[in-house]
Design a protein around this nucleic acid. Structure first.
Lengths: 222, 222
DNA sequence: TTTATAATCAAACTCAGATTAGATTATTTT
DNA sequence: AAAATAATCTAATCTGAGTTTGATTATAAA
């Protein structure tokens, strides 16, 4: 019954990568299904065989990026390193991912809103009415929860660090918001082949944020 | 000849404010001229009496916001305070503005790209062909230069601070990018009436960034 | 009060982009 | 090979949004 997809045919993953790329260049609203399709040598209509509609495709892009980052950061957060080590590593990983995947990274920065203001009401007689619509909303909510979880990972490390005196007294939530904002923003200005490598940028910023949390320090870096 | 505009009629400024507001809620592409017009009780067509087109209107919104912030930060940058004082004050002003004008602030974060990828080619037979098009491009470039200048104000203070030993050795450009990113990002998450006031948030983040630049410090804050 | 022009509107134009319908081709399973 | 379904395409539909046109109203200057 079920058939394995042909090897040379385009699959979901290919389309997601292509979409991220076009999204990066043009932004959601300015990106046409045709643009995305062209990137994988298909027609716009063919995309609808893989994704229900444009919004669902965008969501898939964002979900993918977020999961990868969480996958990398989570084990560090749950390790038994010191909070200083944890935080340094987590920031570094986050930023490095962003520099290596500016397309997805920028999408995560810029394309949240089309998701928030999901306009399309369930039109009767439209394929997208009823349960499909609900399904989308559910998936979107799940995405936002994952996003909150991602931030929560940072908050916990900072809270714990503050409690144990590794970090000075800051507001962990505000600090995290600020930091995550700065880190995501890297996708906007980082250009490959510039003065600094992604790794260097990641290390510099990580060091800086962690440094800013130290309650006491001597004149030279550790 | 020239006629003074009527007092109760809608003016450019009103429209800009309304546009910022709608933009904040919906994003550029999802914002229709009709939406903006409705906000000031006009029809979409009427907007074209005040602005040549949608892109020009967006540009006006961004220009306005940027100029206000520069106006506030520039005198501080040029004052004869210490670099520590300057930077603290500059960040504080920037963030405070953002919290008080989330609409414009978020627009500055999210709506740069529509400007970058200015699609509309000069269509012949269109009112927007020829010199009007060039005029727009010029104005857009001027905006980006102002934007660069805004960042430059921060870079200078940091460079000077590093040179004079007030700050530790950081890369001033990377530091500024990171910081400005974080500050702009405040527009995305700050909600009026939340746990902290705009002023509190501004102070906390300012203190933190400046703190992170100190080459040496004792256990307690100044 | 006349006149010029600013401000506004209603209606029409244009066009692009998302989506659908239906047919066609490709590939795997039986 | 036959059947089933996956992958794709062409062509058409449908809608919404930016913009234009031309008229109408309001207001300030003469």
């Amino acid at each position: 019954m079920a058939r394995k997809p042909a090897d040379q045919s385009v699959n979901r993953e290919d389309i997601i990568v292509a979409a991220a790329d076009v999204l990066y260049r043009n932004g959601y609203e300015a990106t046409t299904m045709k643009d995305i399709a062209a990137e994988v040598n298909l027609t716009a209509a063919s995309l609808y065989h893989h994704f229900r509609n444009k919004d669902t495709l965008l969501l898939a892009v964002l979900e993918g990026g977020l999961e990868v980052v969480i996958e990398q950061i989570e084990p560090v957060a749950n390790s038994n390193k010191t909070n200083v080590e944890k935080l340094t590593e987590m920031i570094r990983l986050h930023i490095y991912y962003v520099t290596q995947n500016t397309a997805v990274g920028a999408a995560m920065v810029f394309e949240i809103r089309p998701l928030l203001n999901f306009r399309v009401p369930p039109r009767n007689g439209n394929q997208f009415g009823g349960s499909d619509y609900d399904e989308f909303l559910d998936r979107r909510d799940r995405f936002f929860k994952r996003r909150a979880y991602f931030e929560e990972l940072f908050v916990r490390v900072i809270e714990d660090g503050v409690k144990k005196g590794e970090f000075r007294q800051v507001d962990p939530k505000i600090f995290t918001k600020t930091m995550v904002g700065a880190n995501n923003w890297v996708a906007v200005w980082y250009k490959e082949g510039g003065r600094l490598s992604g790794d260097q940028v990641a290390r510099m910023i990580a060091e800086n944020f962690v440094w800013s949390l130290q309650p006491y320090r001597s004149a030279s870096l550790p």
